[in-house]
């Protein structure tokens, strides 16, 4: 590989290879936990924390440059903001007492109750929790890094 310069950062070669192999499965498992929460144990928050743990996994194995290059911080802020706006939209639909905006924006055949509650809320919870937790982890690691430099 062309990563000889970055071979010093992070952990050993075995950990990096295993991380590269298992990363997709961890992401997929988190999305499955989040989306099947209404039929089996799980839910949006547990799935979101599992997705955040997969990013933390990259960061612990490869060092922070690779992880932040793969998932930029502007994208994190953007996804948190979009999910919060979708939550605001759901609350406005609930308070207006009906599902009128849903039927304007999407096809009429979608039942608004199922659309609002069992797909949209877990997805937004997953995005908010995973992006928020990973942002927190990055902030705390950067904080400890400046602490080490100050000494």
């Amino acid at each position: 590989m062309n990563m000889h310069a970055k071979e010093e950062k992070g952990m050993t070669l075995i950990v990096k290879t295993v991380t590269r192999l298992t990363l997709g499965f961890i992401l997929l498992y988190g999305i499955y936990i989040a989306l099947s929460g209404h039929a089996s144990p799980g839910g949006g928050f547990a799935g979101g924390v599992i997705v955040a743990l997969s990013f933390v996994h990259i960061m612990l194995a490869f060092g922070k440059e690779v992880a932040l290059k793969r998932l930029h911080s502007n994208m994190l802020r953007f996804s948190i903001g979009i999910s919060a706006l979708v939550f605001l939209y759901i609350v406005m639909v609930k308070f207006s007492g009906g599902c009128m905006p849903v039927n304007v924006f999407f096809a009429r055949s979608i039942s608004c109750e199922i659309f609002n509650n069992e797909v949209t809320i877990p997805l937004c919870q997953m995005v908010i929790v995973s992006a928020g937790m990973f942002t927190t982890f990055v902030a705390l690691v950067l904080l400890s890094k400046t602490d080490k430099d100050a000494e």
């Binding site: 929790v129 927190t136 902030a139 705390l140 904080l143 400890s144 400046t146 602490d147």
Partner: peptide, 19 residues
């Protein structure tokens, strides 16, 4: 979940105090 966010907030404040 609220306990997790409270714990993370406390850790951030403690690390800033240590610095």
């Amino acid at each position: 979940v609220i306990g997790l966010s409270v714990t993370l907030m406390l850790i951030a404040v403690a690390m800033r105090i240590y610095e």
